[in-house]
Simulated assay, not measured.
Amino acid sequence: MAHHSIKAVQRIPISVDEAWRFFSVPENLVRITPADFSFQIISHHHGGQIYQGQIIEYNVRPLWNIPWYWMTEITHVQPQQYFVDEQRYGPFGIWHHQHHFAPVDGGVEMTDIVHYSVPGWWFGSLVNKLVVGKKLEALFRYRFGEIEKMFGKWEGQSCNVKMY
């Protein structure tokens, strides 16, 4: 099973505290996910912000309107710096998503790094090349635009999403 990575970097003209308050609340993920994913959080939360060990359950329809149940666990949290979610059950062979926040002059630089695999040996690699990788890249590009609409545009910045 081949492993793949995606990295998205965005500068946002807000403080690290403001970025953390928004991105560490699971319900806000719905606000930056395309409607065609039919993304719904179905688990019950125990407070506002994420915490280590938190299980988050979703229903999502990312491809061809096929429903998927997805469960992730927040495995690492360093407030105002980073958090990590990992798939415990769902469509990927592996899903490890790092969310980093670093102060920069005039705002915060947010970096998402996702390591993932699509099950199915060579067929999974083909599905990733033809469909999944493109869908994930489009997801992060969509989020880039939504984040700019919500928090403002960083002057001279273009969408920086790279697949590996």
Rank of each mutant, 00 (worst) to 15 (best):
C159D: 06
K135G: 07
M1H: 01
A138L: 10
Q81Y: 00
H96K: 05
E73Q: 09
H4D: 02
V60D: 11
H100C: 03
Q80M: 01
Y69F: 02
E18N: 13
V118G: 05
P91L: 14
F23K: 13
N65V: 01
E146Q: 12
A8G: 01
E57T: 00
W20V: 05
A8S: 10
G47R: 15
I94P: 01
I32H: 09
E18F: 01
G107Y: 07
G106E: 10
F144L: 03
T72K: 05
S5M: 02
F22Y: 15
T111C: 07
E18A: 09
M71P: 00
H76I: 05
D17Q: 15
D105N: 09
F83Y: 14
R21N: 13
M1W: 01
L29W: 12
S24V: 08
H44G: 08
V114L: 14
I6R: 06
V118Q: 01
S125T: 11
F151G: 10
H46N: 15
P62S: 04
V84E: 03
A102E: 13
R21V: 11
I32E: 06
S15Y: 10
V118Y: 04
R61D: 06
V108N: 11
Q52I: 00
Y164M: 12
V30Y: 06
A35M: 01
G90D: 11
V84R: 12
F144K: 04
V104L: 09
T75L: 00
N65H: 08
T33E: 03
T72Y: 10
R141Y: 01
H45Q: 15
I41E: 15
A8K: 04
N59W: 00
T72S: 11
L126N: 00
I42K: 15
A19W: 12
V127S: 06
S158F: 10
W154V: 12
C159Q: 06
R88Q: 08
H45G: 10
S38L: 03
E73D: 02
F22T: 11
V9E: 14
W95H: 07
T33C: 06
K135S: 13
K129D: 14
G93F: 10
Y51W: 07
G90L: 05
T33Y: 02
F140G: 04
C159K: 05
T111I: 08
V118E: 00
I74T: 14
W95R: 03
R21K: 14
G106P: 10
G90W: 07
V108R: 09
H99F: 00
E73L: 00
S5L: 02
P103W: 05
K135H: 10
A102N: 04
K149F: 01
W154N: 11
I94E: 06
A138V: 07
S15L: 01
V16T: 15
K129P: 06
E155Y: 12
Q98E: 10
P91N: 05
G53N: 09
I55E: 15
D112S: 08
I113R: 11
G156V: 12
E155Q: 14
L29H: 12
W95Q: 05
A138Q: 11
K135T: 15
H115R: 08
L29Q: 13
N28T: 09
I147W: 09
Q98M: 06
I14N: 13
G124V: 13
V9I: 14
A19E: 13
A102T: 11
F123K: 04
N128Y: 02
W20I: 07
H4R: 06
M150H: 05
F39M: 09
R11V: 08
M71L: 01
E137F: 03
